[in-house]
Design a protein around this nucleic acid. Structure first.
Lengths: 99, 99
DNA sequence: ACCATACATGAATTCTACATCATATGATTT
DNA sequence: AAATCATATGATGTAGAATTCATGTATGGT
């Protein structure tokens, strides 16, 4: 039986900005400013999106002075992305150039 | 390295109608009319959503007279849903009653 | 105490995906 | 070949999400 509110969780992956944020965090924890630099996205936009990801526990935060260090919940996020990656390679060839 | 168009795939899970369709197909292949009945959704809505799911190869179709029989790509879909299910139980308690 | 930095938050606007409605197509029956 | 059933498709309006802009808060430095 599937829970109908799972869509709330997948929302986090269905947005380019958030995928970029996740990508930037795969290598390791980062401050908001670092994330902005890596993703070339504005700070406000990043903060809003970090909030969504955090609400679903895909991200964790620690304070460090004025900085907030965000880290990825790799236990969940990485396996999910891996499954889609596998699926894409198997069925979808070079869909990656779309949009 | 994450492909930035993965959001296209996750879109399919970030929608209640499509989750309901997926749910209805877990037990086995079904015609569009059957899916409409199980999900209590209108035919046009269902067809539009089936299209999205099919485009990403999460679903497969066969013709049978006037009917189209849709079946789930369980190899991909089920493991993905399982991972989120696990995540929800671990981190989010009874979020399932939201919305 | 003041200013700068790092980040968050709220409101306003823009944008997009979805549902809806109407219509089209294709197969079957009579 | 007309009528009917099963499904798909196109166009449009709209709700909700995402971005943007302005401002707020917290921390640290001087």
């Amino acid at each position: 039986m599937i829970c109908h509110s799972y869509n709330l969780f997948f929302d986090n992956f269905s947005n380019k900005t958030r995928i970029k944020i996740i990508e930037s965090l795969i290598l390791g924890p980062k401050s908001v400013t670092d994330i902005c630099n890596m993703t070339k996205e504005e700070q406000s936009k990043v903060s809003h999106n970090l909030r969504n990801l955090k609400e679903c526990h895909f991200l964790d935060v620690k304070k460090n002075g004025k900085q907030r260090i965000y880290s990825l919940n790799k236990g969940t996020v990485v396996p999910i992305l891996k499954l889609v990656e596998k699926h894409v390679h198997k069925y979808c060839g070079e869909v990656c150039n779309k949009k």
